[in-house]
Design a protein around this nucleic acid. Sequence first.
DNA 1: GTCTATAGGATGATAGAC
DNA 2: GTCTATCATCCTATAGAC
Lengths: 189, 189
Amino acid sequence: MEQLNRKEEIIVTAARLFYEKGYKAISMRDIAAAMDIKAASLYNHIKSKQEILSEIILKVAEEFTVGMECVVAENSSAIKKIEKVIELHIDITVNHSEALAALNNDWMHLEELDLNAFVMMREDYEQNFRKIIKQGIDTGELKPHHPEVILFSILSTLRTLYLWYQKRGKLDVNILKKDMISVLINGIV
Amino acid sequence: MEQLNRKEEIIVTAARLFYEKGYKAISMRDIAAAMDIKAASLYNHIKSKQEILSEIILKVAEEFTVGMECVVAENSSAIKKIEKVIELHIDITVNHSEALAALNNDWMHLEELDLNAFVMMREDYEQNFRKIIKQGIDTGELKPHHPEVILFSILSTLRTLYLWYQKRGKLDVNILKKDMISVLINGIV
DNA sequence: GTCTATAGGATGATAGAC
DNA sequence: GTCTATCATCCTATAGAC
């Protein structure tokens, strides 16, 4: 499958460039130059620039969706579930840190069909997380804060982890998980 | 000063559009259309598209810098200082939520001189925050976590607050401050 | 599978009329 | 202060040679 490998190479290269400057700032010529070929040659492997963006974002979005569904299906405490969500984000960050830039910042440049799919997945994801937090407040595991403040503060940390992980030369994943769980759940005092 | 007002109007309009799609995805024609004039007319008030970006980002970056310097200069506990930093971010978010999108996502499109100024301000800001956290760990106010994990988890929450504040129709600022301080400092359990 | 050439349109910015 | 007209350049994408 020579075809697939080359296509994968385009997607990985593009993800790295999108990570640095964003989808709209990177041209097909830029992607091609980074691979030492000409822009026209890219079209032998991909249909359009949009397709590259779509593959980058939706592949990772589906990993989040599947991961969250596994966590929700568990029969365990809310805190245990939150720990699992944190681990899910760390695992995806470690494996696809560059794709997360596009997912976070360039999703609005998806075309209609993919955009709808993405937005729906993201809303489902947040809704599942919200339910976990409400479960935790109901059972008394979590303090009775406004659930949206808890949801937002954990999720925004996890969503921007890719920025920080790249900068701080790749810590040990298990230490990162332990510290992050401790800070996000138990607080800092 | 009719001139200044028109220029301000351009900057406010551009910030709103950059918030929605990013600097590179918005054209001078888009900005002009949103003001019901033609693109060429913009150049009577501003020098270039770059100048618009620069004004949006650097004005807010300076507010963060000044605010942080005030907090650092205080003679108070680390926790009190962290509370002040949280309040600083909330105040700026409430007053300039749209400019924060450009500051977070489009700073890399600044031209060299402004880019250097911005990066330096951001590094100083993080360094000051880091010192506060280390002070807190040294005095025993904070748990002895890796300081970078604490720094990152608070800062990433505060930096993306603008996204969440826009979506959740403008909560009361004082309640937001109280809840955010409680969640970020005392944790959720 | 890559190339050159090019179509067809968008972009930032300027000149000059009103 | 805004307009029309325009320039030079960039963009995505295609056609067709090799």
